[in-house]
């Protein structure tokens, strides 16, 4: 797989490899803005420690958001570093950052084909703009999709513990339009569109979270 393909599918996301037909509907590359370091690995602890060392050595000074998710299925494990919107091809470049990233990649044994790996990501809080609002879908605590909120009306389903949860994505946001559980509270939660808002189906263990610039405006939403 070419590195650019990895950017589109591996890092953002990930679920694209196990859900190729759905992935075609979206333009995940647009989500890559600002600076971020994403690693798909079997050893999240080692990746986080190595990344912290990388940020210390390269003089990072702003606060960075750290996220770690489980992925389910087969994935290409690798490192993607986007520096101020520019993809750093660390395997062919020779600056300090590239050298350090190549070292991390080697220590983690990447690239490699991995089963049920961890997805580790560092990004600056300012990296997401409102135009880049996205939805993350989790099933049983695993991140299965990350999709951009755009003008298209899209429906899709995500398998959970009890069956398929049906989602509808539109410009207005995301809503649950079908749920296999008994009480269907998730369908009454309406449309989620504010960054930080989430729709949760507890019995089916499926969750959709809106992610974007307002995450830095509002730290949480009380409801």
């Amino acid at each position: 797989m070419k590195r650019r393909d990895f950017i589109k599918t591996g890092a953002l996301l990930a679920g694209a490899l196990s859900l190729p037909s759905i992935a075609k509907s979206f333009t995940p590359a647009e989500l890559v803005t600002g600076s971020s370091l994403a690693i798909i690995t079997n050893d999240a602890d080692a990746a986080a420690a190595l990344a912290q060392s990388f940020f210390a050595k390269t003089g990072a000074s702003e606060r960075l958001k750290y996220e770690e998710f489980d992925l389910t299925g087969e994935f290409l494990g690798d490192i993607v570093f986007v520096d101020k919107g520019k993809l750093v091809n660390f395997r062919s470049e020779h600056d300090q950052k590239s050298g350090l990233l190549a070292e991390i990649s080697s220590k983690l044994g990447l690239p490699a084909k991995l089963t049920n790996p961890k997805f580790v990501r560092f990004l600056s809080v300012a990296d997401t703009s409102d135009e880049n609002k996205s939805i993350r879908i989790f099933s049983n605590n695993s991140l299965v999709k990350e999709i951009k909120l755009n003008n298209e009306l899209v429906t899709f389903s995500v398998e959970g513990a009890q069956g398929a949860s049906e989602f509808q994505l539109s410009k207005a946001g995301i809503k649950v339009v079908g749920a296999p559980c008994g009480h269907k509270t998730c369908m009454k939660l309406g449309t989620a569109s504010i960054a930080g808002e989430s729709l949760v189906c507890i019995p089916n263990r499926v969750r959709a979270v809106v992610y974007g610039a307002q995450s830095s405006l509002f730290d949480a939403i009380s409801h």
Binding site: A172, G173, G190, E197
Partner: peptide, 12 residues
């Protein structure tokens, strides 16, 4: 910390 409070009737 800035906490948003959801509108009880207007979705989103």
């Amino acid at each position: 910390w800035v906490i948003g409070i959801k509108h009880p009737r207007n979705e989103g």
